[in-house]
Design a protein around this nucleic acid. Structure first.
Lengths: 340, 340
DNA sequence: CGAAACATCGAAAAGGTTTGCATCATTGGT
DNA sequence: ACCAATGATGCAAACCTTTTCGATGTTTCG
């Protein structure tokens, strides 16, 4: 059915090996032969069987991409970057959605390993032990997660949080709350740490952790009431969707952002500019993260022994928009005075 | 390095073929042997080399998924469905993002063909001729597009539009505008046709086409002014994001939905419930679409000769929310009277 | 002119799996 | 007790390619 290298060889009157070389390593075969072979191959529409090639070379020219949830636009962006860069490098991309389930994650990765040259693990939910086991089996690059000895691409979460806080402080906020994401999330840990750490850097701040919430709209609704009750004048949300929920809960309670409470998000997902008030948030270069993951992975695949694992921290950018404003002075601050 | 079928065979004290059968065709091997082999294979962490398998069977057990834009949550959902179902069936998924570019689309599909058993083409932007050529080369299932002789999964666009219009008419709207999406979009064609067609079904309606707009927030902003100028009391937008833009433009002009103008969307993307007013829209079961694409494709791959191409129309659901309300009677209708 | 280096190409192995066919044992029927 | 049928398992070919190694013929240099 399909035309094989054998057919080409016969048609061109040369050996199989010559055909292989004429196409893969042209400099190793004499000009006339090379031209003949290339012409015949092209005329017959010959395409090397990638499976056969992979079987002998041990390389598949494809990579795996594992994400927790394909429906989440956050990961969609990363996927886009990964796919684009991989394609440019001649690699195909296997995609896997773990449904946020660590068990599925390990299982799915295991089944991928055999058919790819390496894996990009995006925001992995698995334990360190699981990752440790994985990295012994195949080249791995981590996104949004650190693991000793494995190349990682991460965002400057700390820088983002500090930029937000600096911005809020400049607006006169002193009592600021943080509405956290999932406890198991690595980036939430980073952001929480940066948040509380900022208290030591800047004197006179009153930083409140509201707790951990599901990183969805509903989580923001929950956090909203706590934020109001906390007496804070500004809330930093773990991500944009939560910030949206927060803003909405404020409105439900007859309050509004930024007049009564400043609200900030994280991620800068598209929707943050589609709503009123536009969300002040931190832009994360997600597509670029995808691209860099591929770069790091291919480097690992090719120069495996020499390359030393590095962690790349991508710069983030504060996007000041409408949901943050000057701290309100009235009621709440007076209450605070009473408190003291 | 990796554990092969040979290792398992040696460890279990059986032949290679027995191992192969014990795992792939368990009914062909005696109970005790089967259990022994399965146990050893599992213990050793044996995973069949898919390349070797594909080489001999001629099947890759993987499918290709081609989408216009991975960053678009619409396609993210479809991807999720495709991936989940494919995985359940033991198939891996190659993903490809065409960047909405027809040229890239054909190019990328061609490079995929040789390494997959079939392709799911989601909302293809290419011409019919390109699709015609493609379907001769590999099993193909189309999503959001019809092509003679090729299985397709589509949404009941017409039903969705009619449901929206029925809803608006019930609210007293008579002069209704449609803000179209890209001219080249198949589903926009369907929706436009249903929109204009509804005028014939229901007497006394005044249906206005505002034109074609980019299916983004910016497109909605553009359409907003035209909608206001049209004197319509309700606008049906091609999709949710445009509807968001429309609502925002209304607000910028000092108007609001649904008081001054009812606005409806299409797709029911997550964000449509995160905004005020919540968007009245049409829910499309996108994840299910992904699943059904895989079902159709695998059927095609397995029973190729017998199966006759079918088009499956997925039911949609009108989600009535806040952005649509009773038609306003004042100013605009009086102006209309003058007009007549 | 001879030998060594080189350029070119072919033969053959290797890669891991599936599967048709052969073999062997067991069972049931006569 | 023998034969046929059935069931379980092993043998070996085949899938298509890359790549090592060696063979052959050619050039270069001393």
């Amino acid at each position: 059915m399909a035309v094989t290298i054998r057919d080409v060889a016969r048609a061109a009157g040369v050996s199989i090996s010559t055909v292989s070389r004429a196409l893969a390593a042209p400099e190793q075969v004499a000009e006339p032969t090379r031209l003949l072979v290339q012409a015949t191959a092209h005329k017959m529409g010959y395409r090397p069987n990638r499976n056969a090639r992979s079987l002998v070379t041990g390389r598949s020219n494809s990579i795996g991409l594992v994400v927790p949830d394909l429906e989440n636009p956050y990961f969609g962006s990363v996927c886009k970057g990964v796919q684009a860069r991989a394609r440019a490098a001649g690699y195909a991309v296997f995609i896997a959605d773990t449904n946020e389930d660590p068990a599925v994650e390990t299982e799915i990765v295991q089944s991928l390993i055999k058919q790819v040259d390496g894996v990009v693990l995006c925001s992995p939910r698995g334990t360190d032990a699981e990752i440790a086991k994985l990295v012994t089996q195949t080249p791995v690059v981590l996104a949004n997660r650190l693991f000793e000895g494995t190349p990682s691409i991460i965002f400057d979460n700390g820088g983002g949080v500090r930029a937000v806080l600096r911005h809020l402080v400049a607006l006169g906020h002193q009592r600021i709350a943080y509405a956290g994401g999932p406890e198991s999330s690595w980036s939430n840990g980073e952001r929480t740490r940066a948040f509380t750490g900022y208290g030591a850097e800047v004197a006179g701040l009153d930083l409140i952790e509201l707790g951990n919430f599901p990183p969805f709209f509903s989580g923001g609704l929950q956090a909203g009431d706590l934020a109001i009750a906390s007496g804070a004048t500004a809330v930093v949300a773990y991500n944009d969707i939560m910030a949206l929920g927060l803003v909405d809960r404020l409105r439900q309670r007859g309050l509004s952002a930024p007049e009564d409470l400043s609200v900030t998000g994280f991620d800068n997902v598209a929707v943050s500019t589609f709503v009123r008030p536009n969300l002040t948030t931190v832009n994360l270069p997600r597509v670029q993260m995808g691209r860099m993951c591929v770069d790091a992975l291919l480097e690992l695949v090719h120069d495996a022994p020499t390359a030393q694992p590095t962690v790349t921290e991508l710069p983030v950018e504060l996007m000041v928009r409408q949901s943050s404003g000057v701290a309100r002075t009235p009621v709440q601050q007076e209450l605070l005075d009473v408190d003291v």
